[in-house]
Design a protein around this nucleic acid. Structure first.
Length: 195
DNA sequence: TGAATGATGCGCT
DNA sequence: GCGCATCATTCAT
């Protein structure tokens, strides 16, 4: 039994301006009770995607089957498939009907590292979650987990005692349009953020 | 050690 | 068809 009870972040955490949520997510822990066992990691790098004012957001051109969960209630997981072989994990933000999300780009492994190594063979511990594609592979996340509720018991964010000291803000990675929006946030003391 | 490119599937024009 | 919120490998300095 856990000797310390950590606080699971409620839906109100996600039901706020996306840039605020993105910054506050740094240092939080993502916990996923996968079929293989419990996994957790400390989040160190994220990006914001805001449908209504962001041409780079999947939801910028209206609702489709793929991005539908971004239009739904906050505190839900949005997972999509890119480049033929990778998945990316997002947390839906803002009130229902307003499409926006925060992309998880990198994290530092905490619990369940044996499982992550098994899912991503040959990786050093600090490389297991150092990128959005690698994160989903090491956590075993695919489109099957799309739409899961972060206020449930399968996958959620936890507030622990860790405090982020230095937060940096830059433009996003891998974006061609809307490059000006400096909507990438990361913990500059972590060694696993993208270069 | 940095830049170019191939892998590979799917959603949209 | 084309381009993509990526990564690993190859090739050039």
């Amino acid at each position: 039994m856990p000797r310390k009870k950590y606080k699971k972040l409620p839906r109100s955490f996600y039901n706020r301006p996306t840039l605020d949520v993105a910054e506050d997510i740094l240092g939080k822990y993502i916990v996923y009770h996968s079929p293989l066992g419990k996994l957790s990691a400390r989040i160190v790098e994220v990006e914001a995607y805001i449908g209504q004012e962001d041409s780079a957001c999947h939801a910028a051109r209206g609702k489709t089957k793929r991005n539908a969960v971004m239009f739904g209630k906050p505190g839900v997981v949005y997972i999509y498939f890119v480049y033929g072989m990778y998945h990316c994990l997002n947390f839906v933000t803002e009130e229902e009907g307003k499409p926006a999300a925060v992309l998880l780009r990198a994290a530092e492994p905490s619990e369940g590292m044996e499982i992550m190594r098994q899912l991503s063979p040959g990786k050093k511990d600090m490389e297991l979650l150092s990128g959005p594609g690698k994160f989903c592979r090491s956590f075993g996340l695919t489109r099957e987990q799309n739409g899961l509720d972060l206020t449930g018991s399968v996958i959620y964010l936890e507030e622990r005692s860790f405090k982020v000291k230095n937060i940096k803000r830059t433009s996003r990675i891998g974006i061609n349009t809307a490059k000006k929006n400096p909507w990438r946030f990361y913990d500059s003391d972590s060694k696993v953020v993208s270069k």
